[in-house]
Simulated scan of single mutants.
Amino acid sequence: MKKRFLLAASMVLLFSMVKAQGLHYGVKADLNLFQLDGQGIQSHYNFGGRLGVYANYDFNKQWGIQPELLYAQENTRRDNDFSERYIHNSNPTASKNVKLSYLTLPLLLRYNINRKFTINAGPQYSFLVYENDDLLTYNKNAFKRSDFGVAAGATMTFDILHIYARYVLGLTNVNDIDDRYPWKTRQAQIGIDIDIK
């Protein structure tokens, strides 16, 4: 229910902003360094990527809002001790590679330092739409569907082109196997936005 409400609220906000004069929207892509911290998983950054759309609306010269809708492909790896930690339901012949695909909704507050530099911060909700792993027996899911986090970063503007860097700290335990070992996500991103309007 919460997921549907958040998605509906984001879409209403995006569509209502489309009619506004100070609205800008466009497409974006970034390189996403993804890390999953937790027992049984290798805790180091792996390359992934994100593609999507964004809109931003400034209320005045300093403050604005920026919702985004992104498709993210993330990669992580099973650690050598995975079967020892999850004895009862681990798949001993599981592949080391894990691929996760998320639909991600950041809702960022913008602070414009000047025309060139902007600071962004706000909540981010991610919904797991695809999980490619065989970590557990009987095709059980190892990862929870929802991941909530906080994002912060900065953007540099060159006319219609924007270059940004962002860090996202996951607050949700995404381990769906049991509650003994929490798994939490971390992401570092660098990318570009291009204004369509």
Rank of each mutant, 00 (worst) to 15 (best):
L169K: 12
I177R: 05
L6N: 03
L69T: 08
A9Q: 00
N80M: 13
S126F: 04
N89V: 10
T118A: 14
R85Q: 10
N141C: 01
I192D: 05
K2T: 14
T155M: 11
K28N: 07
L13C: 15
N114L: 14
V98K: 03
K197P: 01
G153E: 05
D37P: 05
F15I: 15
V27K: 05
F15S: 15
N75W: 02
Q66H: 05
F5G: 00
L171E: 05
K3Q: 15
I41D: 09
R180Y: 04
Y57K: 07
T93Y: 09
Q66P: 00
N75P: 00
L51M: 12
Y57D: 02
R4G: 11
F47H: 02
L14D: 00
G40P: 01
D134A: 09
Q124K: 14
I119L: 10
I87V: 13
L51S: 05
I160N: 15
S126Y: 03
D81W: 01
K3H: 12
E131M: 08
Y111A: 10
N60P: 00
K19A: 12
Y102T: 10
F15N: 10
N175M: 10
L69K: 01
L128M: 11
Y111K: 07
E74Y: 12
G170D: 07
V150P: 05
N97P: 00
L135H: 04
M11Y: 06
R4D: 06
N56Y: 13
Y167T: 06
P92H: 06
S95Q: 11
A8I: 11
Q66T: 06
Y71N: 05
L6F: 08
R115F: 04
K144E: 08
K96M: 00
T118M: 12
Y130S: 14
T118F: 05
N120F: 00
D79E: 05
V53R: 00
L33G: 10
G40E: 01
Y45E: 10
F148V: 13
G49P: 00
G38T: 03
I196K: 01
L100C: 06
Q21I: 12
A152Y: 09
L6Y: 05
Q124V: 13
G26V: 08
N80Y: 12
F59C: 06
R85V: 08
Q42L: 09
A9K: 01
R186A: 14
D147N: 15
L6Q: 02
N89I: 10
R77V: 11
T172K: 08
K140C: 01
N120Y: 01
V129R: 10
R50G: 02
G48Q: 07
F143V: 09
I192L: 15
G64Y: 02
N139M: 07
G40C: 04
N173Q: 08
R78G: 07
L33S: 09
L105A: 09
L13S: 11
D133H: 15
K144P: 01
L36M: 12
Q21M: 07
D81Q: 12
A188E: 06
K99C: 03
L161A: 14
V150G: 13
K144F: 01
G38F: 02
N46I: 07
K28S: 12
L31Y: 15
K19N: 09
L108N: 12
Y45H: 14
K2R: 14
Q39K: 14
A142G: 02
L51F: 11
V12S: 09
L13W: 03
F82K: 04
N32A: 11
A151Q: 10
K197T: 06
Q62Y: 10
A151M: 10
Q73V: 09
K28Q: 14
